[in-house]
Design a protein around this nucleic acid. Structure first.
Length: 477
DNA sequence: GCACAAATAT
DNA sequence: GATATTTGTG
């Protein structure tokens, strides 16, 4: 968010809220400093600093969301509905005619307080989160004995009682594992439709996941900085594609970074999550195992982990496509087109982590150049929530890089398999290109053995029920 | 419906 | 600008 100098703003707008501002902050968010005074002036309302202190928020209930959702970690998450704790308090019955404006100001005040408190108490909150998460996880594991889904994908039961209508990823219909997958799609990023019983803020489904990855990234960066220095240079020479993919090694999309650079909080959350869910933190999620970084020989690949690398935490599922979700509070504005229509639901941005990319590469290599089409790759990868579009997009980039790379070495594999069979509509641009090289990075195609043999180093947390129900569906088998 | 490339969004 | 999603075309 753009910051504005408080002094300048006050000088310019004649704001009288100096006392209420936090001088330490220096930069005051526009929404927290400028708007209140403007609104107040416009409506002839009391100034920000004169407004009665907002009532203390009721402590979050010991519900499932409360356990997992740490307010300190939710600063930037955009999925706040009207029931958000940041919403205007409903308890100032006087001055009815001015209440709306007043409440608005109070809401802003609260929001600012939250922002400040969040950053200050992040560490403390984390320890609490860790403790509670651990306790909860054990408890949940006990109550979910026959759970079919993984602890990663289902760290907590849905807050909504309606679990019958869930929106399967489109690939489910494409035949692979329809009905066998237990997790949700990437699109399930919205909170429960009913906030009535949820006092704690909604946790972004991807938050825990990416937080965990962030933690892993931090640890590994420290551990591997030295190795990478040497390995990376060597890898670059070996494969320009690997070099092109370098950003993956450290990539944590900002969109999922809680909206603010609170790395400490994220890391702490990751630690808590890792502890609670038995993430193999040592099994590098970033960098390690990514071909081209020297650790190729030691893939230490985990299907569950790879899946977790992007799979959301399905705290809630969307209504079935048939029942077009009305513009209810259950929907995030960010999920829809700007026109506000419920028609277009934006797909959450998928980050292709090194693991994910590795699996992608393995699938491509295994399938061969000819059969490496989005659908096949998707099935081969057998990752929950991954859509054909995701794969297609990545494949597009993958091919482009390969081409750009000069398409040198041809590992060939079964390139001879080229037959019209798979070339349904594609005969057109089957590029007379050279066989294509498997990307030196693929180096160890057999290592992960991706789709077929998955049994990876199970996290083996005493609590977590299973590594991943996904292992169930093995489409192309 | 699928694959692909280009356009668009973040 | 890089990366991912969406759209248009065959």
């Amino acid at each position: 968010m753009a910051g504005y100098d408080a002094a300048q703003l006050q000088a310019f707008y004649g704001a009288k809220e100096a006392e209420t501002m936090d001088p330490a902050a220096g930069l005051i968010p526009l929404t927290a400093s400028l708007l209140p005074s403007v609104v107040a002036n416009a409506f002839g309302l009391p100034q920000f600093g004169q407004a009665p202190a907002p009532p203390p928020q009721p402590p979050p209930q010991q519900n499932l969301y409360g356990l997992m959702a740490n307010q300190a970690l939710l600063g930037g998450l955009s999925c706040y509905g009207s029931a958000s704790p940041y919403a205007a308090p409903q308890s100032q019955p006087t001055l009815a005619s001015q209440m709306q404006g007043l409440q608005y100001l109070q809401a802003l005040s609260q929001m600012q307080q939250h922002m400040q408190q969040s950053s200050q108490s992040a560490a403390a909150a984390q320890s609490l989160l860790a403790a509670r998460s651990g306790a909860f996880h054990a408890q949940f594991a006990r109550s979910q004995q026959p759970a079919t889904s993984s602890a990663i994908s289902q760290p907590m039961p849905s807050a909504s009682t309606d679990t019958t209508s869930r929106r399967e990823p489109e690939r489910a219909a494409s035949g692979s594992g329809s009905g066998t997958t237990t997790s949700s799609s990437l699109t399930n990023k919205c909170p429960a439709p009913s906030y009535s019983n949820v006092s704690a803020p909604y946790q972004h489904p991807l938050a825990t996941l990416y937080a965990a990855l962030a933690q892993q990234q931090q640890q590994q960066q420290q551990q591997q900085q030295q190795q990478q220095a040497a390995a990376y240079s060597a890898a670059q020479q070996a494969s320009s594609y690997a070099a092109a993919m370098q950003p993956y090694a450290n990539h944590l999309h900002a969109a999922y970074a809680y909206g603010r650079p609170d790395a400490a909080a994220a890391a702490a959350a990751a630690a808590a999550a890792a502890a609670a869910y038995g993430y193999p933190q040592a099994a590098g999620a970033y960098g390690a195992g990514f071909p081209g970084y020297g650790a190729a020989g030691n893939i230490n690949y985990s299907t569950a982990l790879a899946a977790a690398a992007y799979r959301p935490v399905p705290t809630q599922v969307l209504p079935a496509p048939s029942a077009v979700p009305q513009q209810s509070q259950s929907m995030c504005d960010d999920d829809y087109a700007d026109d506000g229509s419920t028609r277009a639901i934006k797909r959450p941005r998928l980050v292709w982590t090194p693991q994910l990319h590795k699996k992608f590469e393995s699938a491509v290599t295994k399938l061969g150049v000819e059969k490496a089409v989005p659908k096949n790759i998707m099935q081969e990868m057998n990752i929950d929530g991954l859509t054909r579009e995701n794969v297609a997009s990545h494949l597009q980039k993958y091919r482009m890089l390969r081409r750009k790379d000069g398409g040198g070495s041809s590992e060939g594999r079964d390139s001879d398999t080229r037959s019209a069979d798979t070339r349904t509509a594609g005969s057109k641009r089957s590029e007379p290109e050279p066989p294509s090289r498997p990307m030196a990075s693929v180096a160890a195609p057999s290592a992960p053995a991706a789709g077929t043999a998955t049994p990876p180093p199970a996290p083996t947390p005493g609590a977590s029920p299973s590594t991943d129900g996904a292992s169930s569906a093995n489409p192309s088998g």
